[in-house]
Every structure is written in structure tokens, then in C-alpha cells.
Design a binder for these strands. Sequence first.
DNA 1: CTGAAAGCGCTAACAC
DNA 2: GTGTTAGCGCTTTCAG
Lengths: 351, 351
Amino acid sequence: MKEVTPFDEAAKGATIYSVAERAGVSVATVSRMVNGSGYVGQQSRSRIQEAMEALQFEPNGLARSLNTKQSELLALLLTDIANPFSAQIARGVQDAARGAGYIPIICSTDTPEAERDTVRALRRKRVDGLILTPMQGERSDENMALLHTLCDKGMAMVCIGRRPVHPHADEVSTDTNAGARAAVVHLAALGHRRIGFIGGQISRGVAMGRLAGYRQGLADAELPADVSLVREGELDEDSGRRETLALLSLPLPPTAVFCVNDRTAFGALAALTERGCRVPEDVSVVGFDDIPLAALIRPALTTVRQPAHELGRLAATFLLGRIAHPETPHQRSVLPCQLVARQSSGRAPDD
Amino acid sequence: MKEVTPFDEAAKGATIYSVAERAGVSVATVSRMVNGSGYVGQQSRSRIQEAMEALQFEPNGLARSLNTKQSELLALLLTDIANPFSAQIARGVQDAARGAGYIPIICSTDTPEAERDTVRALRRKRVDGLILTPMQGERSDENMALLHTLCDKGMAMVCIGRRPVHPHADEVSTDTNAGARAAVVHLAALGHRRIGFIGGQISRGVAMGRLAGYRQGLADAELPADVSLVREGELDEDSGRRETLALLSLPLPPTAVFCVNDRTAFGALAALTERGCRVPEDVSVVGFDDIPLAALIRPALTTVRQPAHELGRLAATFLLGRIAHPETPHQRSVLPCQLVARQSSGRAPDD
DNA sequence: CTGAAAGCGCTAACAC
DNA sequence: GTGTTAGCGCTTTCAG
């Protein structure tokens, strides 16, 4: 009733047994051939080859992983796939992973609960490693502990642009501090003296480094740091628009705004247009990230480029390295950012 | 030398055996408890609970899947994660999948070779189902055959916005035809008589339905179909910019352009600004998709909204249904699109 | 170079 | 309710 009929075999996928039988060799030999481990004689070789093709054999990775304790799966935890910056990172990770025969699972985990569940699920799937991305916003302590424990248990991990959760976890980031500083110096060089900052939640995550850079830039240019010019917000377009409007209604509004990321800068541009301000004649805007659209919007956005693709690629490389050699000492790399001056920044209006 | 020391056990993860031993029951009982299958007495129940927590037991999904022949993995094949529209679909898929305990693997496969390799790898991982997305551009016949074969072998599959590869594969799409038609009718109602179309590769994929809708819209409005107003291109900003410039240099340029997607429309907007054309006073622009940025760019983009999130959600729902009941007859659903009139479309200039 | 046999960690009958 | 016994499909000693 439940025998494996030839039909079923063809339909549901051949096993290593069926291949071995057809080729007239033992499963061990087939296994050796598939994995390229050990020697296989020429005769067996070609007969197995033939059998595999005839049966359209595709080895069962589940069974394989059960033995080898390597799933050849690695996970990338994103807070938001919809963010083009994250998407670039994902591509980088994927490119590096694919080269090594690994396949990345991309998860976007907006809430701490989703993150917790996802991490659990990934652990059950025995993924070989985890890449954690920035902009994680508010992570619950519980999750930090969970990740820490995982690391303790030997799970390979690398953090992109955020403090590592564990001494064993690797780290890759960009020098956003220097990038932000360069942006402010650029604006100052154009004659701006009142430069606003629109950030994400400043106390944590991404915004912090950029705010620090902003302050340093101000100091470099010997400009006073006016706290009323610093606005806290989210990381999206809406927030950029809102905070810009707030800045604009100041008694002495800034002539330039530096935004925590490009999406925020787009919002700023929208707000400025609404209020009838010309960019860059009346107000200059500088973003951060250099997402693809930044170059295409009019006016084209001056921004600080982060090598997102490279960030992802490097993270995956670190991770694969650590998977192969778990005892690798802590790895860390910080990539430079680069100011890309386009149309949205110009000379300060002389008032 | 290689014994499992208590340390290792704690470190590398407990097995169902260690839990059973600690709780003083058989593995079968633990298994029953973990899976909620069969009855487990109150006493055993609490002792197992205790043991699981003490050992931080996380069942090995690999072993589980090997038995059940269900990996609880499903894959989403995207051509480009960087496309916000795809990202939305991904979120929809993820939301639906997560609810059912499935975890989606998102792969962006730009080239046919990458697609082939990815599909192979996914098959080895024994994913339970595949979701194929639109904009697949030129897929090699070889890959079509591969997918077809997979379907034959019983792999669950659903296609989003593209012709299914197999009678067994489900289908979910949006009524882009009607959407495009509505866009053109909208423009005609504003008095436009020369309406351009900027498409992707028209002979295949996405562009086709929209072009057809465009033509129908023209017919509805009793406007002539001028072939010189139809431009073929890619699906990105650059292409939109290029083709718009081409349209603008026509002896009798259009007063409105309908773009195959929002990214193209952004390019069109950029081109128009470069040439000193005001939008919508001189030229109106309508996009397609309604990606988040469309509302925020200035002028805000008039566009046709596709329910991307819902598309993904529904696709995942279909897929999960088919996984649960492989013999389900072919499912198919087409979701409506909706015209969202914003600032980029306005009355035709009276010349 | 090749085969036999013992698992990997879990589930699924089938007894008790 | 609970234990026993086979496997799932592959890898991996260990003998030839």
C-alpha cells in the first residue's frame, strides 16, 4: 500500500539509496562522490553520474546537515526591508554568502517580540550564523540576553553598525562620525552659520554617532552649538518633514539642515518646498546613506555615502570566517564614509 | 577525549535525550509534549517543562523535518530587493508566514544563473514552497523547465503577477490593466490629448498589461494612439529619465506621461525639471505602484496603487494552503488597483 | 578504492 | 498515558 513505486520515486525525489542501487555501488561511494570526499574510481564515478542524472537526484540537505552539524544557512536580521539602505546590505550579504554556498535567510523584525520569535525559530533551524543590522531601535533587554546566550553557545554572530552583543561577536561599521563631521564642515565652508540637525531617537543607535560628528563639525568650524537647532525624531520621511517644519518656525531658522538619513532628508525637502523655500538658495539640505534615489530627486541630494553593499559583504565574510574557525579572535572593521556633494547644498544666503 | 561533558551539553544545546533523562521519562513522551500530539500526564508534563528550561532545550528542526518531510521553510524569489515594491511584497509574505510558524527565505536573483543555483539550493534544503515574483524580466527557458519539473515533483508554488509556470501553480496578481486604463482616463479627463507611455521591456512581463491598459484608456477617451508616444525601457529611474528626454525632443511632445512604475516616474520628474518643465503646469506625470516615497516627493506623485503587501500576504496564504492540501485545485486571485491622484497630474496646458 | 554498520536528533507506529 | 522500536536520508568510522 505504501511501497515506493517507481512513479513515486520519480515524483518525490530520489534518495542516495536509489542512486546507489541503480549505479550498482554502495551508498558510501555515492556520498563520497557527491561531497568530493575520498577517492572514487573512474568506473563508479561515471555510473553514479549517470544514475544521478537519470533520477534527477538532489541530495537531502536536511539529512546532510543533521550529520555534519552545519546547515549552510545564515540569517540576516533587518528591522525593515523597505529601507533601501538595508536592502543594499542584504545584497552584499547575499553576494558573499552565495559565493560560499551559503544561503541567507532575510528576516525583517520590526518588533522585539518578532525578533525574539525569529531568533528562536532560526536557532531551531540550526542556522550557522547571524548578522544583526543597525537601526535596531529599541531592543528589549530580554532579546539582548537571548542573543548573548546564543553567542555563548557558540553561534557565530556579527553586528553591523551597532555595539556587539558579546565579546565573541564580530563588528563591522562605517565611520559615521567622520561622515557627519565632514557634512557639517562642508556646510560651514559654504558660509552656513546656523546648521540644524534632524536625528532619530538620539539617545540610542544610529543617531548618536552622527550627532557627535555634527557637534565636532560645528567645533571644527568654530560655530556655536545651538541646542534649539537639534531635533529628535524617527528615521523616516514623515519625521523629516515634521521636524523641518518645526525648525522653520523658529525665530531664527537654520539656513542648512543635516539629516540623520536620506529618507529624513527627503521629508525635509518636501517640507521646504511646501513652505516655499528654495533649495539650495534659501536652505541647504544634506542627507546620509546615499540611497539610489538621492541622486535622482530634484534637487539632487547632497549626502554622505555609506558603503552599504560592502558593509554587507564584509559582514558575511567575517561570519563565514568565524563559522569555519570558531576560535577566531574578535574581528572588527570600520569603513570610511564619503561626502557626495550634489545640488541640495549651496552657498548660504547672505542676509 | 571527545565525550560529551556536562559543559559541552550546556554549551552546544541539549537534545531530546538529555531532557528525557533529566525528567525521567522516555523521549517519546518529551516529543509528544513538544509537539502537543498525544496525551502527557500532569506529572511528566511539569517535570519535562522543568528539564527543558534547565537545559535550555531547543528542538533540532533538522531532525524533525527529516521525519515529517516538512521543513517549514518557504522561499520568496525576488529579482531585486532594492525595489520598494518587492520589499512590500516581502513584508506581506513574511507576515502571513510568521503567523503559521513558517519562515520565509528571501532571495534576490538578478540573473538567470543565480536563479537556477538558488532554486537548486532551495530544493536541497527541502523548502516546502516557492513564491515567484513579477518583473522577472528575461527568464531563461532552462529555468522555466526547472521550475516546471519542480512543480511536477510536487513542490508548492505561487506566482505573483506573472503567468504561472505550471497548471499546478497558483496565481495572484493585480488588475494592472484596469489600473493603467484608469490612469489614462484620468489624464484625458484633465484635458490631455497627447499622453506618452514609458514602459519596461514591453514584449514581456509587467509592461504588457499596462500598455494594454494604456491603449484601452486612450480608446475610452477616443484619443488616437500615436506610436511615437510609446517608449520602451527598463524599470528604473535612469530609464524613466532617458525616455522622458526622448519624448520631450519630439516635434510635438506629450503633455502627460504615464510611467510603468514609480521609479520610472521619478526619473521622468527629474528629466522634466532638468528641461525646465513645470509639473503639472506644463506636463503631467502619473506613476504606478505607489511606493512610500511617491507621496513625499514634490510634486507628490499621482500614481496607481498596487496592494503590494496584500499581494504578498495572499500569495503566502495560497502557498500555505497548498502545502497543507497539495491536491487543492488551482487558485487564482486578482486584486484591484486604485488611482491615487496627487500633485503631479493637473489640467492640460491650453495651447 | 569500496562496503558494512553505526549513528545524527527526532517522530511515528505499535505495544503495554 | 507511556515506553519500545524502527526508521527519515545522509555521513562517517572502520574494515577490508
